[in-house]
Simulated assay, not measured.
Amino acid sequence: MKKILTLIFITILCIGNAQNSAHRFFYELSYRPNKDSMRYEKETMILDIDKHQSVYQSYELTVLDSLSNDIVSKSENGTMPDFSTVQDRKPISFSHRIFKKYPIQNVLYTDVVFNDDYSYLETPSITWTISNEKRKMGNYVVQKAETAYGGRQWTAWFTTDLPFQDGPYKFYGLPGLIIQIEDTEKNYSWELKGNRKINQIKNILLLEKFNKKNSNSGMRQLSKEKFEEKYNEYKKDPFAQIRQMASQLPSDMKLPDGSSVTDGMREADKRAKEMAKRNNNSIEIPHKN
């Protein structure tokens, strides 16, 4: 009898763990950072799905989070963790995270502007026109669908072979998982490259925990319009907050290379503004008032 009860308990535990598991879908995002150039870049994005929600983000965000947690756990009590290895990694092109709770009624978009966490809720106006056109894409039979969103026209290919009515970025609402989607001018294109099971979805990253702990405001939720205003202000003057903090430093203070703080700030500010100008082709075309 005891063995039977033990077997039943283990079976229930295994079923529970299986129900709590999640699927991770890897998408290759090919995009043009600059609307005046035909140069393309690529980034691996992921869509984590369980029975309650999905989370879309750059794969590099999860890698950095894992490395940071490992560094913190290995640091001795009372000592400052050494994040130098993390800082030397390639900068993340996309820092936003997008949450969809099932059944999907809206999406939660979160991002970091300078050192502050912001979010907004949106109910995307996405109306699909589903075609009868089908074809084979990898291991899946896919069907064509089209929509307009964010100032662009999009063509998607979805499959009913996978029981998820979701997709990368903010896209959802088709009777299957989106395998590929791109805009008609090929500025942005997502294509599914693989998938695997993961134990669970991680909703809060280490950096978000740190910011929440060390900020009185935590994650600030704005309207989408206010968020876009805040983000545009940041792109116009990326070093505004740093400049304000640097103004409190002694005027004769030197950087490690011997140059003045003022000269260093001026050069860094110039590079940041040049980078913002080069990355002028956002996924959604901003509204013009």
Rank of each mutant, 00 (worst) to 15 (best):
I283K: 07
Y31L: 03
I201M: 11
E284I: 04
F94E: 05
I12Q: 10
E233W: 00
K193M: 09
Q87F: 14
S215Y: 04
T184V: 04
P175Y: 06
K213S: 13
T44S: 06
A22F: 05
L121R: 10
L29D: 09
R32P: 02
G176R: 01
D269H: 15
N20L: 10
K100H: 04
S247D: 14
S282V: 08
Y169H: 10
Y120Q: 06
F210P: 06
V107C: 09
S260T: 10
P168Y: 03
G150L: 01
W128E: 05
S30Q: 07
N187R: 02
P168I: 02
D252N: 13
E191N: 15
P286C: 04
M1Q: 12
Y188W: 08
R271T: 08
Y118I: 08
Y149L: 03
Q241Y: 13
Q180Y: 00
I104E: 00
K42L: 00
H96M: 08
I71H: 06
Y59N: 08
W190Y: 12
Y27E: 08
I178Q: 02
K209S: 11
N216W: 01
N199R: 14
K197G: 10
I126E: 03
N106K: 07
I285C: 07
K270G: 09
V107L: 05
Y27C: 06
I178A: 01
K2D: 11
P91H: 01
D36Q: 14
Y149C: 08
E146G: 12
R135W: 03
D161R: 00
S217I: 12
R220M: 12
R271A: 13
R196K: 11
G264K: 02
E208Q: 09
I49Q: 01
N195R: 07
Q57F: 11
T184P: 04
S282M: 06
N211A: 12
N20F: 11
